[in-house]
Amino acid sequence: MIVFVRFNSSHGFPVEVDSDTSIFQLKEVVAKRQGVPADQLRVIFAGKELRNDWTVQNCDLDQQSIVHIVQRPWRKGQEMNATGGDDPRNAAGGCEREPQSLTRVDLSSSVLPGDSVGLAVILHTDSRKDSPPAGSPAGRSIYNSFYVYCKGPCQRVQPGKLRVQCSTCRQATLTLTQGPSCWDDVLIPNRMSGECQSPHCPGTSAEFFFKCGAHPTSDKETSVALHLIATNSRNITCITCTDVRSPVLVFQCNSRHVICLDCFHLYCVTRLNDRQFVHDPQLGYSLPCVAGCPNSLIKELHHFRILGEEQYNRYQQYGAEECVLQMGGVLCPRPGCGAGLLPEPDQRKVTCEGGNGLGCGFAFCRECKEAYHEGECSAVFEASGTTTQAYRVDERAAEQARWEAASKETIKKTTKPCPRCHVPVEKNGGCMHMKCPQPQCRLEWCWNCGCEWNRVCMGDHWFDV
């Protein structure tokens, strides 16, 4: 396979590697080409510095992935760790964990309700045991953590790749202090920090972006993250068709209702045909949960890209028209025109101005929308079919299609509260000796007794199943 190397943020060049090629071997190839010592090179990928003893497969490097290699003399205490030698983080029983690669970060837990604080980093599902597709590297999971809308060759929703760059020099040479644990960490600028490894760059702020994971991409090709779309790892039924499908869209209502993408497309087109989208002054033209839940309008309007190009163009047109109407304007009634106009409040005669090729020149009556006339309008008909009709959803289907309910059931079956801080902690095999993952707590306690870890627990039921 081919990976592209950008040395000291210059133009990239291809390097041929195998899945079992080590990072140090990659350094040696680059060092020979650039005429520099291999031990002064640092390989940066997806916000993480890659260790010498890791392989291309370990690092989730795919065909035509772009890695950054910078030349920086080692500072005291760094060289041993980078070589894969006596790194205290690798000691058996050590409590410190390697910062998780962005290629394996899962933010789907952050669609849980606000009262489930902490689960994004504490609760991990076991539903990723799908067998890898044919042709994928051994052991590589097909679980997708992110979804994007690819405006490039795909023109559809695709699995996405999370990447990070330095907000100062805009190069992907920043190593994160810690990985993101929720969508806010990724979507809110300057929320996460790190250290830029580019020479002479003092940058410390992280800037995240997404790429389409279905095809090789260049540095400049980015895609918009659709953070309401998630892999259906909890096997929730769709609120409309009641099938279990994946991926799904999880509405931001209190129940976190789930809808499959085909039904979401149908829901949007139906509402669009009836012009029953909601115009929100802050958000724009949007839709609420299909069950009509309060405070559930979709905030990231790129989710409506699921409509496809033709329907999305209609959505944008109707949204612009609705904006004009909300501002007190009118639409030209001549067939084939429909231009938005903003006449004076007491102006009865409205002319669709033909300047700049935008208007048709038609003069019409503001009251009856017919060709302009003197005197009273002959008839004014009330528009028919403008009443909002509820999208029919079966109550039982709505009850079963809740992301929140599956989460709470998982928590109930696989977790116990920490005796000190009461945060839910998952036990997935292993011994009875637990350690609270909350940095402010870190209590060592017994899963069996529910009390602080002691010699009695150690001698009596340390390794009970």
Rank of each mutant, 00 (worst) to 15 (best):
V5R: 01
F362H: 07
W183R: 00
V393G: 05
Q389Y: 15
S109Q: 13
R455M: 15
Q165A: 12
A291D: 05
T414H: 13
N454M: 03
D243G: 10
G118L: 03
G179V: 04
C337S: 03
V244L: 06
G77K: 08
V5K: 02
G203V: 02
G194A: 08
C360K: 03
I44E: 03
P202K: 14
E310I: 08
N232A: 00
K408V: 12
E353Y: 07
A363W: 06
E399G: 10
F463P: 00
C449G: 00
F209R: 11
C182I: 05
V117T: 12
G93D: 11
E374Y: 06
W453F: 04
V244H: 04
G284W: 02
G139K: 11
P113A: 11
Q64W: 08
S218P: 09
P335C: 05
D243L: 13
D62N: 14
V56I: 14
G355F: 10
E195G: 06
T173M: 06
A406T: 14
G430E: 08
L287R: 02
V290A: 12
L358F: 13
C154Q: 01
A38C: 07
S127L: 12
E367F: 09
C337L: 03
E322F: 03
Q438F: 06
W183F: 06
P437W: 06
A138I: 12
S378P: 13
F362A: 06
R72N: 15
G308F: 03
K416T: 06
W183Y: 06
A82W: 14
L41V: 01
L301C: 07
E353R: 07
I411G: 08
E395D: 12
L249M: 09
D460W: 02
N235I: 03
S218N: 11
K32A: 15
E452R: 15
A38R: 05
P133F: 11
F251V: 01
V70H: 03
C418H: 02
C238N: 00
A214K: 09
C196L: 00
V111H: 13
P113W: 06
F208D: 00
G354L: 10
F381G: 05
C289Q: 00
M327L: 09
Q197C: 09
T231A: 12
A120F: 04
K416W: 07
H265E: 12
Q78P: 14
R334L: 07
I122H: 15
V258S: 05
R163E: 15
D60A: 10
N52H: 03
S181L: 06
G114T: 13
H433P: 00
V30Q: 01
L112D: 14
C241M: 01
G94R: 12
G160C: 02
P88Y: 06
H200L: 12
L176H: 02
E444A: 14
L307V: 07
D262P: 05
D18F: 10
A91K: 09
V269Q: 05
Y149L: 07
N356G: 08
F362V: 05
G93W: 11
G357P: 08
A120S: 14
T103S: 11
I236Q: 04
Q34M: 07
E322W: 03
S110F: 05
V70A: 02
R104I: 06
E49S: 01
D86L: 11
D394F: 04
G85W: 10
A172H: 12
P247K: 05
T415K: 10
H373F: 02
H302R: 08
L307Y: 01
L26V: 04
P159R: 09
C332K: 03
P180K: 00
A92W: 14
F7Y: 07
V17F: 02
D184I: 03
S378E: 10
L341P: 03
K349H: 07
R51E: 11
A371S: 10
E409H: 12
I188Q: 12
T386Q: 11
R170E: 08
C431V: 05
L107I: 10
W462H: 15
M434V: 06
P199H: 07
E221P: 06
Q197E: 11
M432V: 04
T204N: 10
V425T: 14
S296Y: 06
T217A: 13
N454P: 01
H215D: 03
V250S: 02
S131Q: 11
R6N: 04
L261E: 03
E96F: 09
Q438N: 04
I236F: 03
C446H: 00
T173I: 05
R104F: 07
E309W: 07
W447N: 05
R51Q: 15
D280Q: 11
P113K: 13
L443W: 05
C241Y: 01
G459D: 15
R305S: 10
T21K: 04
R256N: 09
Q311H: 05
V5Q: 02
T217V: 09
W447D: 05
K413Y: 14
N254P: 13
D130A: 13
E98A: 10
D185H: 03
R140G: 12
G94Y: 14
E452S: 15
R6G: 03
H215K: 01
Q389P: 15
C241N: 00
I298E: 00
D87V: 12
G429E: 13
L112Y: 11
Q155D: 09
P417D: 15
H373C: 03
L283H: 11
R271V: 05
G94K: 11
L123A: 15
S181A: 13
A291G: 08
E221Q: 09
I44A: 03
R442W: 05
V393L: 10
G12T: 07
S378C: 13
E28T: 08
E382Q: 13
K369S: 07
V324H: 06
I239D: 00
A46M: 14
H68F: 02
C457T: 00
D274N: 05
A82I: 12
F13K: 02
A291W: 05
C59A: 07
